[in-house]
Amino acid sequence: MLADEPKTLDELAREHGVSRERIRQIEARAVELIRSAVQAVSPKPELRPVVEPRRHAP
């Protein structure tokens, strides 16, 4: 799934046969899971990186 060039939600949706909204939901959940994992292993809150989901144009 890793690619050299970023893909749009529409491109990913077409490739996987799902809606653009479903791709957005999957992305948001993945960011949430990564954030939780980082918080679980970071020794100090001030050392935790800030992971923000990408903002997509409608």
Rank of each mutant, 00 (worst) to 15 (best):
R29F: 09
E21K: 11
R55F: 00
L2D: 10
G17R: 06
R54K: 14
V51I: 14
S19W: 09
P6F: 01
L12E: 08
A40C: 01
S19R: 06
E21R: 15
V51E: 07
V50C: 01
P58D: 14
Q39H: 10
R35S: 06
S42E: 01
E27L: 15
V31K: 06
D4C: 08
L12K: 05
R20D: 08
R29H: 13
R55T: 08
R22S: 11
E27H: 14
L2K: 15
R35P: 03
K7S: 12
P53G: 05
A3W: 12
Q39T: 07
A13R: 00
P58K: 13
K7H: 10
P6E: 11
S19G: 14
V41Q: 03
E32Y: 10
R14Q: 12
V38I: 08
H16Y: 15
L33R: 14
A13M: 02
V51H: 02
E15Q: 15
A40Y: 05
E52R: 14
R55Q: 09
L9I: 07
V51L: 10
V51D: 03
T8V: 06
H56L: 09
P43V: 05
E21M: 15
E11M: 08
E5W: 07
R35A: 06
P45C: 02
E27C: 15
M1R: 06
A37T: 05
A30K: 11
P6C: 11
V18I: 15
R20Y: 00
G17M: 06
A28T: 10
V51M: 04
E46N: 04
I26K: 10
P6H: 09
E11N: 08
Q39S: 06
A57S: 14
S36P: 00
E21H: 14
A30D: 13
H56W: 13
E52W: 05
P45G: 02
D4M: 08
R24C: 04
E21I: 14
A13E: 05
I26F: 11
R24D: 04
E46Y: 01
E5F: 10
D4Y: 12
P45Y: 00
R22A: 15
R14G: 02
V41E: 02
V41G: 00
A40P: 00
V31I: 10
V50H: 05
P6K: 12
Q39E: 06
E27Q: 11
P49I: 01
L33S: 12
V31Y: 10
R20G: 07
E27D: 12
G17D: 11
A13P: 04
L47G: 00
R55D: 05
V50E: 04
L12R: 03
S42D: 04
D4T: 15
E11Q: 15
R29S: 13
Q39K: 12
P53C: 04
E46S: 09
R24W: 09
V31N: 06
A57P: 01
I34K: 08
E52T: 11
S36V: 00
A57D: 12
I23Y: 04
R35N: 11
E11K: 05
A28E: 15
S19P: 11
I34E: 13
V51W: 04
P58C: 08
K7P: 02
P58E: 14
R24H: 10
H16S: 13
A13Y: 10
H16N: 13
E32S: 14
I34P: 02
L2Q: 13
H16C: 10
P43A: 07
Q39N: 09
R22H: 11
P45R: 00
R22D: 13
R54P: 13
V38M: 02
A30F: 09
V18P: 04
H16I: 05
P49G: 00
L12P: 00
